[in-house]
Simulated scan of single mutants.
Amino acid sequence: MSASSSVQQARQALGQRLRDIRRDSGLSARALAEAAGWHESKCSKIQSGRVMPSEADIRTWTAICGAPGQAADLIATARNIEGMYIEWLRLERSGLKRAQESVRPLFQRTRRFRMYQSWVVPGLLQTPAYTRAVLNTIVSLRSAPDDVDDAVAVRIERQKVLHSGDHRFAILVEEWVLRTVIGTPDVLIGQLGHLSTVSALPSVSLGVIPLGSPRGSGWPVESFTMYDDAQVNVELVSAHLTITQPAEIAEYSRTFSELAGIAVHGAEARSLITSAINALG
C-alpha cells in the first residue's frame, strides 16, 4: 500500500460518512449545497474524498442535515487524517534530536514491534557510526538542523529497550540493505558485525529476505514499523505517515507475514550477513 492511497482511503471513508448523513436527512447534494451557499460540485468532491472538508464545512453539513451531534466526532476524524501525513521538514524543523525523542513514549508503551526495512538497518540495531552516517545524509538531503551528535546519543539510548521488559522485536530487512554502503565500508562492516550479534538476543527475531526471492502482490515499496496492533509508521522520501485505522493496520500485518514467509532466519540469516562482510574484503 502506498502512503498516498492510505491517506486517500481515509478521506474517502470520511466522505462516505458525510454522504450517509446527507442521505439520511433526505436532502440531495444540490439541496445541501444551496442551503450552505456552496457550488454543487463541492458536495460531490467532499463525498468522493477529492476535497478535504474544513471544520466549518463539517459543522455546516451536519447542521443542515439535522445531525449537529455528529460534528465533533467527524471533526476529530478529519484532524486525524490531516495528522497522518507529516512532512519530514516539519518533523525535523527543530532538529534531528527532537525527531528522535518524539517517538520515545511510543517505544515505551509498545510490547510487540514488527519492522520492515528496505533501505537501511533499523535504528534499534544500528551502531553509533552507522547512525551518524545515516543522519548526516538526512542533514545533507533535507537541510535539517545539524545536531547529529545529540540525535545519535538519543537513538543509542533508545536501544536499551532491546534488553528491558517484555518487549519483542520481529525485524525483516532486504539482503541489499546488508550490501548498501552507508558511510564507509569500515562503517558497514562494523554495522554488520553488530547486527549478527544483536540477532542472537532472546528478544530479537531477525529475518533477511534474500536477493531474487519471488514476491507476492503485497510487496511494499516503503519501510514500515508496526507498534503492537495500534499504529503503523511508514517512512517515505518526503514524509512520515502514521496509520491508526484497524483495517489498514491489518493489511500491513498481512504484508509483514508474507514477507516473513520468504525471509530466512537464524543461521541462514547470519550466513548472509557474513557473506556481505566478506564481499567488503
Rank of each mutant, 00 (worst) to 15 (best):
Thr197Asn: 09
Gln159Leu: 03
Gln117Lys: 05
Thr225Pro: 00
Arg104Ala: 11
Leu141Ser: 11
Ala269Lys: 01
Asn233Ile: 08
Gln9His: 12
Glu268Asp: 12
Gly49Lys: 11
Val161Ala: 10
Asp166Ile: 05
Met52Gln: 15
Gly69Ile: 05
Gln9Trp: 11
Val152Asp: 06
Pro53Arg: 04
Gly95Leu: 05
Asp73Glu: 07
Val237Thr: 15
Trp119Ile: 05
Val121Pro: 04
Val204Gln: 10
Ala3Leu: 09
Lys42Val: 13
Glu174Ile: 00
Arg93Lys: 14
Ile64Ala: 03
Gln47Lys: 08
Leu14Ser: 11
Ala36Pro: 14
Gly266Pro: 01
Ala29Gly: 15
Arg179Gly: 12
Ala31Asn: 13
His167Lys: 03
Arg79Lys: 14
Ala200Tyr: 09
Trp61Lys: 11
Ser164Ile: 10
Gln117Leu: 07
Arg132Trp: 01
Glu235Arg: 02
Ser238Phe: 07
Ile138Asp: 10
Glu248Cys: 00
Gln16Lys: 15
Arg270Ala: 02
Ala31Trp: 06
Pro128Ile: 02
Ser205Asp: 15
Met226Tyr: 08
Ala72Val: 06
Arg22Ala: 10
Ser25Thr: 11
Thr244Lys: 09
Arg270Gly: 02
Ala279Ile: 02
Glu258Trp: 02
Ala63Asn: 13
Ile189Cys: 13
Leu192Ala: 11
Leu172Gly: 01
Glu34Arg: 14
Pro53Tyr: 07
Ser2Leu: 06
Leu211Cys: 12
Pro68Glu: 02
Glu87Asp: 12
Gln70Ser: 06
His39Asp: 14
Ser140Thr: 12
Val161Asp: 11
Arg50Ser: 15
Lys97Ser: 08
Leu96Pro: 09
Glu87Tyr: 07
Gly83Asn: 14
Arg50Thr: 15
Phe256Leu: 02
Ser140Arg: 03
Ser54Ile: 12
Pro246Gln: 09
Gln16Tyr: 11
Pro214Lys: 14
Val173Ile: 14
Glu251Cys: 03
Leu124Ala: 04
Phe113Asn: 07
Val161Tyr: 04
Met84His: 07
